[in-house]
């Protein structure tokens, strides 16, 4: 039997009402309701996003364990998902995330120039956070905005066809 065709459910007797807040639980439950009951774990990605947003933009081991407990899935499967996707952060981040796409189209259209610019002007290399904790710079795999490369995702908003000067304007208005 493959764990791809059948969910590896870990039944837990733990009291789930102590996990997260009422609002988050309600939001997670709405996601769970989109899938067949035995495939509760399909809701892992939106759940991680909800939990990460509520925790100031990053996840911790304890939060991932709580997600696993809430969705009755092995903790390892949650770690795998959270460590695979670029939008989850496992280390503390700044107040904002500046994600520069560095896949082929953006690279050809100057994304490396953007990264170098941020490094020089703000002293922040990819993966680092500015000293004032304002933003974290991330080098991202394809944002799917090749048509208007280079693209940068700031928090949850796409910005396209950027130049270093245009990026500066965006970063400067971050609080």
């Amino acid at each position: 039997m493959s764990f791809r065709t059948a969910p590896l459910t870990v039944a837990r007797d733990a009291d789930k009402s102590s996990l997260f807040t009422d609002d988050i639980r309600a939001a997670i439950d709405r996601e769970i309701a989109k899938y067949p009951p035995e495939w509760k774990q399909s809701a892992v990605m939106p759940t991680l996003t909800l939990v990460q947003d509520a925790n100031g933009g990053s996840l911790t081991r304890e939060l991932m364990d709580a997600v696993a407990a809430y969705l009755d899935m092995p903790a390892m499967s949650v770690y795998e998902v959270a460590s695979f996707y670029g939008m989850y952060d496992l280390e503390p981040v700044g107040r904002h995330k500046v994600c520069v796409c560095n896949s082929i189209s953006c690279m050809l259209n100057g994304s490396e120039e953007l990264i170098d610019h941020v490094r020089e002007r703000y002293g922040v290399a990819p993966g680092e956070t500015s000293e004032d904790g304002r933003f974290t710079l991330k080098e991202f795999e394809c944002l799917g905005a090749c048509k208007d490369a280079p693209a940068v995702l700031i928090d949850k908003v796409y910005h396209e066809c950027l130049t270093p000067a245009a990026l500066d304007k965006l970063i400067d208005v971050l609080d």
Binding site: P74, M76, Y79, E80, S83, F84
Partner: peptide, 23 residues
């Protein structure tokens, strides 16, 4: 996952960063 029934090892990370371990 399939024989022991306990997911002790997993593949975390992606691409070149992927690694097998207990995390």
């Amino acid at each position: 996952a399939e024989i022991a029934g306990v997911r002790e090892l997993g593949a975390t990370g992606r691409g070149e960063e992927m690694r097998i371990g207990t995390f």
